[in-house]
Nucleic acid binder design. Structure first.
Length: 876
RNA sequence: GGCCCUGUAACUCAGCGGUUAGAGUGGCUGCUUUACACGCAGCAAGUCGGGGGUUCGAAUCCCUCCGGGGCCACCA
């Protein structure tokens, strides 16, 4: 051995050092090699303003597991990292920063402000990258991208201009979701709906020329100042006669028509009369268009009342205006009733401000022509979404998709490449222009709006590879293979990448999408600062090590939400500790290095060695299978189970006598050492994608050929290592040992009491096995003697394990009623089961219809049960 | 209103048509066993939400009821 492992497992002592080694070794950077198949994946770019939270930790752990697995499996692997400029979020952060220095972004002006953001990005923007490194992410940092890099910005312009020229981007006036706090339009998906308790106000509108009053219910009384009609259903007998008359808007004292609109009004709902405010409500806007109603804007882009709202309200915040309107209505006798009301309110997901529907001039993507091919790609299997249940969500959304509002009234982002001249001619161009191509005017100004952040992230899989240039990276690594991301950005990001990828590269940007769940607390609650149940990945990495954190996240990922508890990480750091100590033990007894260990000759090995290799081989096969289907939980559990229980609890204990020279020949001892090394080596490689640090720290000391375990080959199933016979024999031996152990506890004996064991096996070969390994039975079951195929003395306790008859000669002892009861129940259980199995076998339908292996299984089980019952009965 | 997920041991979850329903954590009883007390050995614990159906066979498929959760949708 090169060197010994430290006595204690202290992840802090080596994790960062090892990461630095990997970076120095440039193992994350794929080398151009046309002969090897490639595997590529792009990171869901975190916001530059981001600080690693548990969701990042999850999605990047999962990616890293797949990436390390593929890399070790021989693929030319690229994991391309980067960050997103995150328009609003970043602008807000820097604005807040400036605010503390008493500066307003308007004081600086656009250019200076954007400069400030770039400065901010240079100093703080890589924070999250460093944090991803702590987690062990093996992304190729030499290819780090940013959505506002020059190349990516060129891609944005190219796409914009192309869509514009194809008529798929247009500019127009429409009602959009407006955030009065951020003072920008946002798209439909950025609006989140929150259930809220509110009031429903019943307002009376006098009808001109009559003494009738129409009652209208609304949650937003302040908008009544902008009413330009009342509407009823044309077939509603209650109001039929009023259609065509005029009503008076209280407070404003304005006359508005009473119109009939069958689309807007549901006569069954509320009073059957609706106030129409075309400027401040989506459906009213449409009703206004249908009925040629005038628009009256009473709320401005900052959420304050306009002059149109009247002198009493002008300048008031919309919520203050609401109170004042209600008070006035009450005073003037127009407020009939106020009821508690539960409804959902649209808010801006980024800042939680109530959305104000607002008519404005914006840029839109005509989405249907893009959505169609994107639907087909998933439908025909070109792209597979996993877990599959998400496909219907995807279809549902894509089939009902609305045009995408892409312009934002922000300063930070990709400025829309449209130019206006003094004569208001508009030119959309990839290159900046200095003169108007239509009139030659040199007074040219660029559109002030920027693009939705998701517009540029929608190009991520190919813009990061150099598109629109046909770069070597683009040729080699595009399209990517898989995408791993949270389901929460299925619409924001995944759908748009599919649409853009198909349109601009002619290829699906990835063939598989794995959507991971949300990390929640141990009781399934969302993590939030107010609930105080947030787990900070950096904290827990500090406490338990990155390996334990990663393993925990992997083991909890079964495709659904992830209920995370710190206790779990504690548990898996215990696993890391176990690995550490088992390795330490192994290394104390190893005298060879991997690189000159030579091949193992399985035929030269005894059953015990063949058994552990067979178990490991089986585990290897299953781990590879599970990873191929993104079953991180299965894969992680398989390795855990094998390493801890098969390898540590059984194999190491069983090999100790030989290893310590207490049993067997030198040759046996050398074989044991060789196998110990082999199992450790393969286990570490198998485990590496999950726990990269500890596996590296240990594996390096095994003296392998490769400089790092991360570039060593990933274990694959090898036919010659499988040995069903060895598995059966050792299983039986384990069963016998366990039976003796629980007999000891069951009958109230102490570990010091030693028994004589009689094992009767009918097959000669198996009898030889038990004779050969009787020393192990003795050792692990704490026996005094083992007799194989000898008559057990009368009075010995009899049982059968896997069909092998055993008898244990227990020392004289008073047997309690409780102990007898236990034995009786054991027998009863077997009898009952036998009854079931026999019933099944007696059923012709079962024998005829069930697959042969199931029937054979039942028969074998019957034999086993019968043997067991026969023996157990003798104890009565 | 539409769509989707979900109810399995005290807790959190696997298992999703085939024998005896598993894991981690927790609980209980022993153990300083020469790598590890972040350990070892053993034990207890489940009418697989209720009901009905399909099947030789159902935790697993279908129906229904009850209970959780999510997404989408302009109900004033």
């Amino acid at each position: 051995m090169k060197e010994e492992l430290a006595k204690r497992y202290e992840p802090k002592d080596f994790e960062q050092r090892i990461y630095a080694d990997w970076e120095r070794g440039q193992y994350f950077t794929p080398v151009a090699d046309k002969d090897r198949p490639k595997f590529s994946i792009v990171i869901p770019p975190p916001n530059v303003t981001g600080r690693l939270h548990i969701g990042h930790a999850l999605v990047n752990t999962l990616q890293d597991i797949i990436v390390r697995w593929k890399r070790m499996s021989g693929f030319n692997t690229l994991w391309l990292p980067g960050t997103d400029h995150a328009g609003i979020a970043t602008q807000m952060v820097v604005e807040r920063d400036l605010h503390q220095k008493g500066i307003n972004r308007h004081d600086l002006g656009r250019e200076k402000f954007v400069e400030k953001i770039w400065e901010w990005k240079e100093s703080y923007g890589n924070q999250i990258i460093d944090q991803l490194k702590r987690l062990g992410a093996s992304a190729d940092w030499t290819r780090l991208r940013f959505t506002m890099d020059e190349g990516l910005s060129r891609a944005v312009r190219k796409v914009f201009v192309s869509l514009y020229n194809d008529g798929l981007i247009y500019r127009g006036v429409a009602m959009v979701n407006w955030c009065p706090h951020c003072r920008t339009a946002i798209s439909d998906v950025e609006v989140e709906y929150r259930e809220r308790s509110a009031k429903l106000y019943y307002i009376e509108y006098p009808v001109e020329g009559t003494d009738r009053r129409l009652t209208v219910a609304t949650t937003r009384p302040e908008t009544m100042l902008g009413d330009t009609a009342l509407a009823v259903h044309p077939d509603d007998d209650r109001y039929k006669d009023l259609i065509g008359r005029e009503a008076i808007v209280p407070i404003a004292n304005r006359r508005v028509p009473i119109i009939a609109d069958p689309i807007l009004v549901d006569p069954e709902f509320g009073t059957g009369v609706v106030k129409v405010t075309p400027s401040h409500d989506r459906s009213d806007y449409e009703a206004g268009n249908r009925n040629n109603l005038p628009r009256l804007q009473v709320i401005d882009e900052t959420g304050r009342m306009t002059r149109e709202a009247g002198a009493d309200f002008e300048g008031l915040d919309r919520f203050d205006a609401r109170k004042k309107v209600v008070a006035r209505l009450k005073d003037e006798g127009f407020l009939k009733e106020v009821k508690d009301y539960q409804h959902s309110v649209g808010v801006h997901g980024k800042c939680d401000t109530d959305i104000e529907p607002m008519i404005s001039r914006q840029w839109f993507v005509k989405i249907e022509p893009l959505a169609k091919p994107a639907i087909d790609a998933v439908r025909d299997g070109t792209i597979q979404i996993l877990p599959q249940a998400w496909e219907s969500t995807y279809f549902n959304w894509m089939e009902n998709i609305h045009d995408w509002t892409i312009s934002r009234q922000l300063w930070w982002g990709h400025r829309i490449p449209a130019f206006y001249c003094a004569n208001e001619h508009m030119t959309v161009s990839e290159e900046d222009i200095t003169a108007c191509p239509q009139c030659g005017s040199t007074e040219v100004r660029q559109e002030t709006d920027v693009l939705d952040t998701w517009f540029s992230s929608g190009l991520w899989p190919f813009s990061t590879m150099g598109w629109p240039e046909n770069t070597p990276d683009y040729q080699t690594f595009y399209p990517t293979d898989t995408l791993i991301t949270g389901f929460d950005i299925l619409f924001f990001w995944v759908a748009r990448m599919i649409m853009f990828g198909l349109r601009f590269t002619g290829k699906a940007p990835f063939s598989q999408v794995f959507l991971n769940g949300l990390v929640r607390d141990e009781h399934g609650q969302k993590m939030s600062k107010t609930k105080g149940n947030v787990i900070d990945p950096l904290d827990v990495i500090e406490k338990y090590g990155a390996d334990a954190v990663r393993f925990t996240l992997a083991v909890l990922t079964s495709g659904r939400d992830i209920p995370l508890a710190e206790a779990r990480m504690q548990g898996y750091s215990a696993f890391a500790n176990k690995i550490w100590n088992a390795s330490r033990f192994a290394m104390m007894h190893l005298d060879i290095e991997l690189k000159n260990a030579g091949r193992i000759d399985v035929d030269d090995l005894k059953v015990l060695e063949r058994w552990i290799l067979s178990r490991l081989n089986e585990t290897t096969r299953e781990v590879n299978r599970s990873l191929a289907t993104y079953r991180f939980d299965e894969a992680a559990n398989l390795i855990y189970q094998f390493f801890w229980h098969d390898f540590c609890d059984w194999y190491i204990e069983m090999t100790k006598p030989v290893l310590l020279g207490k049993h067997g020949s030198d040759r046996d001892r050398n074989n044991a050492r060789r196998v110990l090394l082999e199992v450790l080596d393969r286990s570490l490689r198998l485990l590496h994608p999950f726990m990269p640090f500890i596996t590296e720290e240990i594996w390096q000391k095994l003296g392998g050929v490769e400089p790092s375990v991360m570039v060593a080959p990933y274990p694959v199933f090898a036919e010659e290592l499988s040995d069903a016979d060895a598995e059966r024999l050792i299983d039986t031996m384990k069963g016998i040992i366990t039976r003796v152990r629980n007999l000891r506890a069951e009958k109230g004996f102490t570990p010091k009491d030693r028994f004589r064991l009689y094992v009767n096996y009918e097959v000669e070969r198996d009898a030889r096995f038990f004779s050969e390994y009787s020393y192990l039975l003795t050792e692990l079951a704490r026996l005094s003697e083992v007799h194989v195929n000898e008559q057990a003395p009368a009075g010995a306790f009899q049982d059968a394990v896997n069909g092998v008859a055993i008898a244990v000669e227990l020392p004289e002892k008073v047997v309690t009623a409780e102990e007898l009861e236990k034995t009786r129940r054991e027998l009863e259980k077997s009898r009952k089961e036998l009854e079931g199995v026999e019933g099944r076998l007696a059923n012709e339908q079962f024998v005829n219809n069930a697959p042969p292996n199931v029937v054979a299984g039942a028969q074998a089980r019957r034999a086993e049960l019968m043997a067991r019952i026969e023996k157990l009965e003798k104890n009565e």
